[in-house]
C-alpha cells in the first residue's frame, strides 16, 4: 500500500476538489463504499451526526468517536476523526478512560442497541450514574443486525427474529426510561424519519455537560423489517411516519414501544447536575489542595 493513501484526506485535499460532497471532510472517503444495506437507517443517523458536528463549533481534532461491535459499530471507521472500534459492549467504558485521561476531548459513543444495552448495558447505566461527560448515540433497530437479525433487549414482544421464530417472549427495555433512571442529564429519542429534529438533538447532546443519550429508531429492512412486515427501508419509514408521536418533556416511563405500535419521540430529560469531573476537582481542591 502506498503511503499516498493517507488517513487524513481533509488536510491533503481541502479546497482542491470543488465537486466534493459537503460531508466528505468528515468522512473517510478512502473507506467508501460502506458496508450498510440499502434502506438501512445507520447512514441517516450518521448523516445527522455529521451535520451536527459541522454546526457544533467544537474543535474537531478533539472530537473522538468510539464504537462497539455491530453494523452501527462500523460508524467509527467511516468518520474522519480520531475513532475507535473497540470490543462488543465496551465502547462506553473505553470512552470513560479517554475522557478522564484527557478532559479536553469531546467523546461520542456511537453504537447499536445490542452493543450498548445487552452486552454493554451495565456500562451504560454506570456511566450515566457517574455522569461522565460523553454523548451516547444508540441506533436501535430492534435486533442484532451484524450477526443476522437475532432477538435483543429492545425487540418488541411478539416480533419475529432469527432466534425468536415464534415471536419475542421478552419485555424490552424502554431506552429513554432506562437512561433517565440511570442519571443521564439529556435524553432524547427520534426516528430516522425526523432528521432535522434528530440533528438538533444531537447538537444539544454534544453541547451538554455530562452524560447525554440519544436513541435513534432506525430501519433494518434486511433482517428485522423482512420478518416483521416492513420489508423495505421505505416501509419502515412509513411506519415511523404513521406511528411517530412527538411528546417533549413526557415522563419517559410512558415511552414503551410495542410491536408496530406508537413511537413516542422527543426530548425527555434536559437537566443540569455536577459531572464526575466536577466532583473530582471540587473535592480534591478541598482535601488535597
Amino acid at each position: 500500500m502506498s503511503s499516498k493513501q493517507t488517513v487524513n484526506p481533509k488536510l491533503e485535499t481541502q479546497n482542491s476538489k470543488p465537486d466534493r460532497h459537503p460531508m466528505d471532510e468528515l468522512l473517510r472517503e478512502d473507506r467508501l463504499p460502506h458496508i450498510w444495506c440499502s434502506g438501512c437507517g445507520i447512514g441517516v443517523a450518521l448523516t445527522c451526526f455529521i451535520k451536527a458536528l459541522q454546526k457544533c463549533g467544537l474543535d474537531l481534532d478533539k472530537v473522538v468517536v468510539v464504537s462497539g461491535i455491530g453494523c452501527t459499530g462500523r460508524v467509527a471507521g467511516y468518520v474522519n476523526l480520531d475513532s475507535f472500534h473497540t470490543t462488543h459492549g465496551r465502547a462506553i467504558p473505553f470512552a470513560t478512560g479517554l475522557k478522564l485521561a484527557n478532559p479536553e476531548l469531546k467523546v461520542v459513543v456511537f453504537s447499536g442497541d445490542g452493543d450498548l444495552i445487552a452486552i454493554g448495558g451495565n456500562h451504560l447505566i454506570h456511566a450515566a450514574r457517574r455522569n461522565v461527560n460523553m454523548t451516547v448515540i444508540c441506533v436501535n433497530n430492534f435486533n442484532y443486525g451484524m450477526t443476522g437479525g437475532q432477538v435483543g433487549p429492545t425487540t418488541p414482544p411478539g416480533a419475529i427474529t432469527s432466534t425468536s421464530p415464534y415471536g419475542c417472549f421478552e419485555h424490552p427495555f424502554n431506552l429513554p426510561y432506562l437512561a433517565a433512571a440511570s442519571g443521564a442529564v439529556y435524553v432524547a429519542r427520534w426516528t430516522t424519519l425526523h432528521v432535522r429534529r434528530l440533528e438538533k438533538s444531537i447538537l444539544e447532546a454534544l453541547h451538554k455537560r455530562g452524560f447525554s443519550f440519544v436513541e435513534i429508531i432506525s430501519p433494518c429492512p434486511t433482517l428485522y423489517g423482512r420478518w416483521n412486515k416492513q420489508r423495505t427501508g421505505l416501509a419502515q419509514m412509513q411506519y415511523y411516519h404513521d406511528q411517530g408521536v412527538i411528546r417533549h418533556g413526557l415522563d419517559p416511563k410512558e415511552a414503551d414501544i410495542g410491536l408496530h405500535g406508537e413511537i413516542i419521540e422527543g426530548v425527555f430529560v434536559h437537566i443540569e447536575k455536577p459531572t464526575f469531573l466536577d466532583f473530582c476537582s471540587d473535592a480534591l481542591a478541598k482535601s488535597v489542595g
Binding site: F84, T86, G89, R90, P93, T96, K99
Partner: peptide, 13 residues
Amino acid sequence: LASMITVLGASWG
C-alpha cells in the same frame, strides 16, 4: 471488563 477497557481508553488518551 470495564476496568481493562477503561485503562486502554486512558492510554489512548
